[in-house]
Each structure stands twice: as C-alpha cells, then as structure tokens.
Amino acid sequence: MKRLVVSLCLLLGLAWAQDAFKVAVVMPSATNDLAFSESMYDSLLAIQEEMGADNFEFDYADGTFVVDDAAAAIRDWASQGYDLIIAHGSQYGAPLQEIAPDFPDVSFAWGTAGDTFGMDNVYAYEAASDQGGYVNGVIAATLSKSGIIGVVGPIEVGDAKLYVDGFKIGATATNPEVQVNVNYIGSFGDVALATEAANTHAEAGADVLTGSAQMVVGAIGVAKERGLLWLGTQASQTELAPEIVVANQVYDWTVILKPIIEQVKAGKLGGEAYVITLENGGLDMEINDNAGADAKAAAEAAISGIIDGSIAPLGE
C-alpha cells in the first residue's frame, strides 16, 4: 500500500513536471538580428519570464534560411511531443502545408501570413506593419526639412512591402509635397549595398531615412555619420544609434502568442488567423524624445486615427 502511494505520488510528480508548455520555433536569421527573428525570440523570452521557466519551455533553430532544413526541423519536432511549433517566416508556409496534415494532434503557427490553409491545427499570424509604417511616415514628413525621405527595403514583397507602402501613404498624407524615394536592394543580407543606398538617399537630399529587415544596420550607421534621422521597424533599433533613431515600430508577438497558447491548452489546435495591430498593442510605437513635441503629437493623432478607423494606412 505504501509503495502504491509512493509510486502514485511519483507519477503525479512526473505529470506535474511534464506540464510545462513546450514550444519550438524555427527562424530564418539570428536571434539577435535587430529585426524579424529577434522580435519573435524576445517575445518568447518575455512569455517565459511571465509564465516561469517551469511552465514554459522553448527550443529554437535559428539561421535556418534553407526552407528544406526548416521542413525537416518542423517534422522532427512534431514527432517529439511539442505543444506548439512556430514556423517564423512566410517562406515556411509551403512545407508546413505539407506537414501539418500528418500531425493532426500537434498545433502549428506560422507567419507572417493570414492563411491557415483551412486546417484546424494551424494558426496564422501577421503584423499590420502598414500601420506603424503609416505612423513612421507621418513622423518622417513632420521632421523632414528638405522634404525628401529615403527608404531602404530588401525585396519588394511581404512584410517589408506592407511597411513601405504604409510609410509612403503616411508621409504624403501629412505633407503632399514630400518626396519619398524608395530603393529595394534585392536581398535581406547585403549590408554593403543597403549602406550605399542610404548614402545615395542622402546625396539625393533626404534628411530622414527608414528601412526594413536585418541588412539596414549599415544604413543606420550612414544616418548616424551624416546626422540624418532614422525610423526603425520590427525590433527596436534605438541602441544602435540613440542620437538619431527617433521612432521604432516594435513587434510584440506576445499579444497573439498568449491567446494561441491558451487555446492550445484548452484543446483548440488552430484554424484562426491573428494580426498584431496598434489597437491590440502588438505593434508598439516607441517614439523617442528626440522626435520632438510636434512629431510626437502628429504620431499620437495618427495612432488614434488608425485605431478608431478614421485613417486607412493603405489608403482607400
């Protein structure tokens, strides 16, 4: 009898220990890229801090830009009893669509995308980056003295394009005279070309710059060197050059990860698409003091306009 009690306690203890919610995430770049991957990594760390390391564990595979390797990772994790597997990159959707049906008891999430493939074990998530793009555009147009603003983008698709499109509309809505020059450098990795693009924007008269994706670190350096203002997106880029970064749109994925985790715990494995927005706080506009009162006020007005629906960041 005594032995039975002991073993029951042990079993319970084991069950208790296994209760931690286990997440695995695959990401295309490094966890400290100051951009897309970092935003997810930081969000998972924040959740872990909140829930406690005993209740929330996560494993990751960073730098997995080879789509096929990501597919292998997802399949491997799926067969290992993780509660939630996150494919953090829109290029991972294609393999996920093939894998998810083979593991109906495992929950998957992928982004940035809005499509769950009609599967009830897949969540989709995306960022309304056009909203922060719009706000950054408003700030840029308010602060620009020359009336010329430069944008350095990676490839003309997805999250980056959404941000840039919103930015252009925000800037011209604030000041129709303002000229927004856009340059896509054709990759997410060419720091040298992104830097030269920033130089070119400066030569062309731009005094405010912005850009999306991880290769902008060099462009921020140009802005710093030449005393131009910089507007960041995805993660906070302020610490790279505190004196010239005036605002960042910071992605906080905890806002959508929490409800997803709750749903998975409750047994609902997918079928919903989430968006982080200014309204639900997933997009956090971090406006620094060097933006000045005018720009800050204009930005606040734009934020509340977007939230109450009176402003459409992508136009009508």
């Binding site: 770049s29 490094a30 890229d33 730098g63 990759s187 990795g189 060419d190 720091v191 040298a192 070309l193 830097t195 991880q214 290769m215 670190v217 060099g218 350096g221 060197e225």
Partner: peptide, 14 residues
C-alpha cells in the same frame, strides 16, 4: 571603414 558594423555574412558573397 565603410559600414562600421558587423553582421552575420556581412560580405554577402563579395
């Protein structure tokens, strides 16, 4: 000198 920063695969195939 030119970029004043480092990042993974900084040269990008140069």
């Amino acid at each position: 000198a030119l970029l004043n920063v480092f990042q993974q695969n900084l040269t990008n195939g140069m």
